[in-house]
């Protein structure tokens, strides 16, 4: 009965009910305690960052990261800390990771732009059709789940319009609602496609960042291969395939070559 006094709102006397309740409470409280610890580490890390002791701040951030859970804000702050430590490649990796989770966040894109502006390699991406760029921009303006909810909302709207189509009194209203229903259905399907793209991008492990200061790209997956070109820290590459210790990469401008696995870290 100690528990009932401790939690006066539990009025039941049935033993199994108390047991279940306390078990639930313990679980909830352990989650709450864990969340509290994470919050305190987070606050401490932010204070350390503000004080300029970036090494310690990074240590705290990585403690949170080690929990296995993810957060765009966490990755963004880690990216900032690495940037302040002049670790360009790492900062770009973490900004990219944050951007994967929150592609619409302007702080992340701004800082990533600044970090990219410091990288040595200037790679002109292959020009693409402007409509493609538009579509990409629209697709990247929301996360996969946002698109998922948008698709659901649009589908509900389609059903509403169908209702109108069936039960509208005048022929004109029926016509309009039919056309609108078709258009909105297309949009809904489009949202599903966008959500799919975003999901693929989120779990995509082909994009990587060059981490060593200088990397020589070879023509074949062995050390005796011809040197094709040189890449510097912070450059984004796409991993095409992996062969033993080597991986084939492609740059944004279409150049391809082989580098050792360690030379690029997957975002």
């Amino acid at each position: 009965m100690k528990y009932t006094t401790a939690y006066p709102h539990t009025h039941t006397t049935a033993h199994w009910r108390i047991g279940a309740f306390i078990a639930a409470l313990c679980m909830a409280s352990s989650f709450a305690a864990q969340a509290q610890i994470v919050d305190s580490i987070w606050a401490k890390a932010n204070t350390l960052y503000a004080a300029g002791s970036y090494d310690d701040a990074l240590q705290h951030y990585t403690m949170i990261e080690a929990s296995g859970e993810v957060s765009a804000d966490l990755f963004y702050n880690i990216g900032n800390t690495y940037f302040k430590q002049n670790n360009l490649a790492k900062s770009i990796i973490y900004y990219e990771r944050a951007l994967k989770l929150h592609p619409e966040d302007r702080d992340i894109t701004h800082n990533l732009d600044i970090a990219n502006a410091v990288t040595i390699d200037k790679i002109e991406p292959v020009p693409e059709f402007f409509v493609t760029t538009w579509i990409k921009n629209i697709r990247n303006s929301a996360s996969a789940d946002t698109w998922a909810w948008v698709s659901l909302a649009l589908f509900a709207f389609v059903l509403l319009l169908t209702w109108f189509f069936f039960f509208a009194r005048s022929v004109a209203w029926r016509k309009i609602s039919f056309i609108l229903a078709v258009i909105v259905l297309l949009f809904s399907i489009n949202s599903i496609v966008f959500a799919g793209y975003r999901k693929t991008a989120l779990y995509d492990t082909s994009a990587a960042i060059i981490t060593p200061a200088v990397v020589t790209v070879k023509s074949s997956p062995d050390a005796s291969g011809k040197d094709l070109f040189i890449l510097h820290e912070g450059t984004k590459v796409t991993i095409l395939e992996t062969l033993g210790e080597w991986q084939s990469i492609r740059l944004a401008d279409g150049k391809q070559g082989w580098i050792l696995k360690y030379a690029a870290e997957v975002i």
Binding site: D39, G68, E69, S71, D73, N80, T81, A144, W147, A148
Partner: peptide, 22 residues
């Protein structure tokens, strides 16, 4: 030109496979 400041608002962690979509 400098990077934007860190985000200090409350941290919302979620699991890696958190997506509702799919």
């Amino acid at each position: 030109n400098d990077i934007h400041y860190i985000k200090a608002s409350k941290l919302h962690l979620h699991a890696k496979n958190f997506l509702f979509f799919g």
